[in-house]
Design a protein around this nucleic acid. Structure first.
Lengths: 230, 230
DNA sequence: CCGTTGCTTCGATCGTCATCGAAGTAAGGA
DNA sequence: TCCTTACTTCGATGACGATCGAAGCAACGG
């Protein structure tokens, strides 16, 4: 007898619940009210849904005074959502949305790292420069790549302490190609944001790149200039 | 606007449909009648469900006379199902099944490669022997490993012609650890079956290992003897 | 040709569950 | 203290879709 996946799938299969899960792919913790707005439902409906998602371990909840903050319950859940997004996006018969948001395709947060055309462009450039090695869809950091990132400021000692993979290929749903996940993928996104080269949109996963940030990304990662344009 | 994953999830979220999808994780093509027996529903209900699964690209169908053979629509779908299995198995609040089938945990087909304790045991042993390198959950074949598999009879030229990754880590739902997927994972399963060291159970994903097969696996892959016992 | 088997389509039935109005509790702040 | 806001619980309602009996079409084999 294998695990019964239908409960899990059915849990995600409700439109309101799936919209809330997608919103939480931003990696942020959102309140119940924020999530009800995301899903365009009343707070009482959201409350009922969120209770289910917490009971069945897809979300974790933290109380802060009267606020209830919800987050995805870790990386496996994010991976599952991204896999669903990827399969959905690659199967035209399942896609009934109109033209997708160009900003979202350009650059967006994929849980804790950068996705979209920009994320893929950085990945490709790093591979072309011998920083990463992509062999049969397996991604690893080269020795040169390690030195490259040390120069950029990465603390590999701290990163090694985590069981988190350094490089992990993450199939980008909008580009259908690989962007970088893992510890280094996360570092790249955080670095970009901390330097002010881009900002996260307040209520979506979009990452807007500034004009100076564009130049900096071209220079830093060797991406094509057209990829960093707004 | 992101892809709407709720349709896909809801499609899998029906108990009868999920049972059929799991049955097809054996990698075999099954007829509509066989699938209706798997799901314990009438043929007419199965027909209705299968039509949906084909229309929405989760399954492909081939007619042979009066027989309709259904298969999973490729590796991304298998990956999605295995991810669902893994998340389900790791979340006790979602698991309401009784003790799992020990044969299924021992050795089973995961789409086209070997999973279960045996699959994980082979993986661990290959890592310990320097055939595979598992670094931060990324799996790659070492140079020694390439020679090792050439000696075993692997044709890497033929395998390189496929875009299929050589080694891919696949998270095993019963062991919660990695077994080997990709071209080499597939080769190992096929080799084992062709040599008669084990046989597939007729109506499940279980792989039964013969007594001589046990010895051979211990010798060939250096697994612990206890792992190959029935 | 005819009976059997595999599979599909149709439509009525009924179980499931998302939804929100109403009501209530708790936290925050003036 | 009192008003506002965040959130939960309850229960009735109605939309949705899985299900199977009935019927039909096509392939197979004696």
């Amino acid at each position: 007898m294998e695990p019964d996946i239908s409960d899990l799938a059915r849990l995600i299969g409700d439109p309101a619940r799936s919209r809330m899960l997608i919103a939480l792919m931003s990696g942020k913790a959102l309140t119940a009210t924020e999530l009800s707005l995301e899903a365009d439902i009343t707070p009482q409906t959201a409350s009922s849904h969120l209770s289910k998602l917490v009971t069945q371990d897809l979300l974790v909840m933290r109380k802060q005074g009267r606020h209830r903050y919800f987050q995805l319950n870790g990386y496996p859940v994010a991976e599952l959502i991204e896999t669903l997004l990827s399969v959905t996006a690659s199967q035209p018969n399942l896609t009934k949305t109109g033209p997708s948001d160009p900003d979202l395709r350009q650059a967006r947060v994929c849980y804790d790292h950068l996705g979209g055309a920009l994320g893929v462009g950085i990945y490709d450039s790093l591979v072309a420069r011998g920083v990463l090695e992509d062999r049969h869809a397996i991604t690893r950091l080269t020795d040169d790549g390690e030195r490259y990132f040390i120069r950029l400021g990465v603390d590999f000692d701290a990163m090694s302490r985590s069981r988190r993979p350094l490089c992990k290929s993450c199939l980008d749903w909008s580009e259908r190609r690989t962007h970088l996940a893992g510890g280094l993928g996360q570092w790249i996104l955080n670095d970009l944001l901390m330097r002010g080269w881009g900002q996260r949109a307040p209520n979506s996963r979009v990452v807007h790149i500034t004009a100076p940030g564009r130049k900096a990304l071209v220079e830093r990662y060797g991406i094509e200039a057209s990829l960093a344009s707004a």
